[in-house]
């Protein structure tokens, strides 16, 4: 999966901050977010409500909230997204980057056939009508839809959620994008279907050498699927590590807390360690480390300034005392 050479990233987010206007001045939603995705690489973006994970990848498509103010840089395949014009953004969304959302039924018009949906996308990408039909059938076959030619005439309501998500993936991949943004693509699906959709996504991604961002609230899923996992909390990145590394030895107390809060299926049945409080939005966070109010390891130093990401073992962690061995 990770290539030996170090090709130019297909997505690069550097120091991204974003705020929207509120009643009493700007409301910050993201602060200093960084993210690098190279071709052929899968990067997980994990966090709870309000962490800013979805907002971050939407920004990669130029889909920022209305009247949002941004700072920093977002580059997709060489295009500076934050300063791009309408035409460039349209090209970006048509050719360079594609997105798959949580609910496939919200991504496809229920009153039109699957074929019409796919052909329309291909035609918008500049393929002529006959070729578009042939390519759509090919794509349906590739994502594992039986009798693809007949499926073209069927409506979304005739498909199960998992099958419809395959159709959506076929549509997303129809223009051979360089970057695939998957926002909780399996959350609305059944457990056994989740494996099918994940294996389809990863195999197509490897085949095409695309970069993929896999957004999920499920740290275990991200760790199992992704080359690298970026953990976000309250609009900031708190830890970046390889998937298995993160699972084995989390460096940030928040990552560790997420792992401990999830009831495990394997090993002895342990007591759950609930995290006190609730996930915060960036605008509600205290000074210094955003997680310190909920952290069992926090002390006065944590209130002074926002910790920068620092190397610790196999992780980059934004914590003054990273790693379980440092904790009481």
């Amino acid at each position: 999966m990770t290539t030996t050479v170090d090709p130019r990233p297909v997505l690069e987010v550097e120091g991204l901050s974003l705020s929207v206007p509120g009643h009493d001045g700007p409301v910050p939603l993201l602060a200093d977010v960084g993210l690098v995705v190279r071709p052929g690489e899968t990067v997980g973006l994990v966090g709870e409500s309000g962490s800013g994970k979805s907002l971050t990848i939407r920004t990669a498509l130029g889909l920022t909230p209305r009247r949002a103010r941004t700072a920093g840089r977002v580059t997709v395949d060489g295009l500076d997204v934050l300063s791009a014009g309408r035409g460039e953004l349209r090209e970006l969304r048509r050719h360079t980057a594609a997105m798959v959302f949580q609910d496939p039924r919200a991504s496809v018009n229920g009153s039109r056939t699957i074929g019409a949906h796919l052909v329309e996308g291909l035609r918008a990408g500049g393929v002529d009508r006959r070729q578009a039909r042939a390519r759509a059938v090919e794509l349906l076959e590739r994502v594992g839809i039986r009798e693809p030619a007949r499926a073209m005439r069927r409506h979304p309501g005739e498909f199960s959620g998992g099958m419809l998500q395959r159709v959506v993936i076929a549509g997303a991949l129809s223009t051979n994008p360089r970057l695939l943004l998957a926002d909780e693509p399996t959350t609305a699906l059944d457990v056994t279907t989740q494996a099918e959709v994940v294996s389809l996504l990863t195999s197509m991604q490897a085949e095409a050498g695309m970069g993929m961002v896999f957004v999920t609230h499920d740290l275990t899923l991200a760790a199992a699927v992704c080359d690298r996992v970026v953990v976000m909390y309250a609009g900031r990145v708190v830890e970046v590590a390889a998937g298995d590394e993160l699972f084995r030895s989390p460096a940030h107390p928040y990552t560790a807390a997420l792992l401990d809060a999830h009831p495990g299926l394997h090993g002895p049945r342990a007591a759950l360690r609930a995290v006190p409080g609730r996930p915060l939005a960036l605008a509600e966070t205290p000074s210094g480390c955003s997680f310190r109010d909920r952290c069992t390891e926090a002390d006065d130093a944590c209130a002074e300034e926002v910790p920068a990401l620092r190397r610790h073992g196999g992780s980059d962690a934004a914590c003054l005392r990273p790693g379980r061995e440092a904790w009481a």
Partner: peptide, 18 residues
């Protein structure tokens, strides 16, 4: 049970079993 992600999880094998 095999469908629940864990370190070393193989979604392709689960999909085949399904």
């Amino acid at each position: 049970l095999a469908s629940v992600p864990a370190p070393g999880w193989d979604p392709a094998a689960v999909a085949a079993a399904n």
